[in-house]
Each structure stands twice: as C-alpha cells, then as structure tokens.
Computed example of a mutant assay.
Amino acid sequence: MDGEFKLVIGRAVREMAQFYSSEESFAIKKGRHLPNRGAVIEVLKDLRRVMFPGYFGTENITDTAPEYFVGNTLTEVYVVLKKQIETALLYENEEHKTEEEISDQAMKICKKFFSLLPGIQQMLLKDAQAGFDGDPAAKSKEEIIFSYPGLFAIFVYRIAHELYLMDVPFIPRIMTEYAHSRTGIDINSGATIGEYFFIDHGTGVVIGETTCIGNHVKLYQGVTLGALSTRSGQQLAGVKRHPTIQDNVTIYSGATILGGETVIGEECVIAGSAFITSSVPPRTKVTVKSPELTFKGPVDSNVWE
C-alpha cells in the first residue's frame, strides 16, 4: 500500500469513526444485542417442516409417530425462539425490567404462540386449498405447498402476524423481509388477512401494515394495497392508512388500491392496472379503459435488423 493510499484510508477512517459517534442509528444500546437473523430464519424453516411434514425435511410421519416428530421439533424451536424473543425484548427494554422479568415475559409469549400453531396450520391448509382451487395450472395441492411462492409468503406472514400482535420487536419484520427477499411478495406482519387466501404468481405484491383482507380473496402479481401518502412519516404510526378488502374479492395484476378509508366491497372484481383511492360498492366490476393502439405499416423489415 503506497503512502498516498494510506492517507486516503486514514481520512476515510477518521470521517467514518466520527460519523459513528454522532449517528444515533449506529449507537447499539450498551450491553444489549439485536436478534440473530439467521436463528430467526431457522425457526421459520423448522416451523415450516412442522406445518407441512415431509415436504421440507427427511421426516416421514407415516413411518414414525407424528407426536414424536412434532414434539421434538417444537421443543427445539422453543429453545431458539425464546432466546431471540428475550434478546429483542431486552434491547427494547425501556421500562427497565430485570432479566428475570424479561425471561418470564418471553415465556408467556412462547406459551401463547405455541398454543396458536394448530390453528395456524388449519389456516395454511385452507390457503393451500385456495391455491389449488384458484389455479387451473396446479396439478395438485402438493405442488402448491412445495413450489408456490405465494403460499410461502403467506406461511411466513401467518407466523409473523401472531408475534406482531404480541408486540414482539424486530422478529416479525425479520421474518416477513426474509419472505420478501425470497419471493418478491411484501406482506407486513401487521396486516389482517382472513382464511382461504391466495396470491397467484406473486412477484411485486405489497400489502401494507393496516390492510384488512377478508375471506376468499385472490390477488395477482403486482397488486399494491398501500397508503395514500406517507409524507407525514411517524405521525401516521398506528393510523389506519391501508385499504380494507372484503370477502370474495379478486384483484388482477398491477392494480393499486390506496387509503385507509378505501373499502372494496364483497364479491368485487378489480381489473389489472386499476388505480383506486375511493371505496367500491359490493359486487362491482372495476375495469380500465384500454388505451388506443395505433398501427402503422407496412413496416420496413430493416428496422428489426
């Protein structure tokens, strides 16, 4: 390393070190740690094996007692998840609770969360059925479970949502952003989504934090259920700013529906590329007028060479 480059490195080190001391985001709270992202992802992988045994691991519940497989796996998940919840709670511990109190809080969260798992599994099976019923290209429910990114994103959401409702910091977001990175589907863990939910193709779907979705709803790729404006930033925290989608609604690709007061009534069909910022009455078909296509010819074949 020549002398000139050493000077460049030295200047960068000084400037960045000064920035570390002045920027609040770099000031990790003393004696505290953020949750381990890898550990949280492993929890999701193990829970996926429990929800859909035989699809994502080597277990075969027809050959062994399912109670043994589920019990052993959930015990392992509990150990990891409780530790990560404790870490998250300790980091956000503004009430100055003792470590024993935090551990007890994490235990209570885990007890409630694990009690909800059978119900989550039933919801996911309905989601898989919705995928099969709604996609003529699907050959079986097994294909939906094993291959479809939409169901994977919904699985992660349903796990993360319960932890969100219990005010667990960081972990729900880690989970949903993992699904987002894997699938291109961004479902905030705070959204409320009913049963028999299906996302076809999926890429580019965005579902905001305060979105409410009823039962038997189907979305296609590129759908955005978002807020009208986020210019007010944190002033909007906790405010209903995303739309409500009632039962039996189908929303086609590229449609955008915005606003906390916007309600899409039951049994509506929303055409692709629609842009909606006000409520739509039940049993309405919303279409988009096709742009006029202009054809000029004959075309010079040299243009395409």
Rank of each mutant, 00 (worst) to 15 (best):
I109Q: 04
A12R: 12
E76F: 03
D186R: 08
S278K: 09
K141Y: 00
F114P: 10
R48I: 02
D46C: 05
L116K: 14
F26E: 06
T203K: 12
Q234M: 05
S115C: 10
Y157H: 13
I257F: 12
S25I: 15
T294C: 04
L81D: 05
L228K: 14
G238I: 01
G222Y: 00
A160D: 01
T183S: 08
P118L: 02
G184H: 05
P149L: 03
L236D: 13
L90W: 09
V223H: 08
T250M: 14
I207R: 02
I270K: 00
E177A: 01
V217P: 07
G254L: 04
W304A: 09
H180P: 02
A12H: 14
V70I: 13
A106D: 11
L293S: 12
E76P: 00
I61A: 02
H161W: 01
V303N: 13
L163F: 05
L47G: 09
T224M: 07
S21W: 02
Y68G: 00
E143D: 10
T87D: 06
G260S: 06
G31Q: 15
Q234W: 06
R283Q: 08
S181K: 08
M16A: 12
T262R: 13
A128R: 05
L81P: 01
F19L: 10
R37Q: 04
H33W: 03
G238D: 04
L74M: 12
F56C: 10
P291C: 04
H242D: 08
F132N: 04
M51G: 15
A138T: 06
T211L: 09
F52A: 11
I41Q: 09
G71Q: 07
F26W: 09
E59Q: 10
I9K: 13
C268K: 06
G208D: 09
A179P: 03
A227P: 06
Q221D: 11
F69L: 07
L163G: 08
R182S: 06
S301I: 15
A128P: 07
K111C: 10
M107T: 14
G57A: 10
S273W: 09
H96C: 07
F69C: 05
M1Y: 07
G272S: 13
G222F: 02
S232Q: 15
P149S: 02
D300S: 08
G190L: 05
H33G: 04
E67W: 09
T294E: 11
S253Y: 04
R32M: 13
K285F: 02
G10Q: 15
M1Q: 14
Q18L: 15
T277L: 08
I154D: 06
T192D: 12
Y20L: 14
I199P: 03
H180Q: 15
N215V: 03
V249M: 06
P136Q: 10
A88I: 00
R49I: 14
E177Q: 10
P282M: 15
Q121W: 15
R283K: 11
I251W: 14
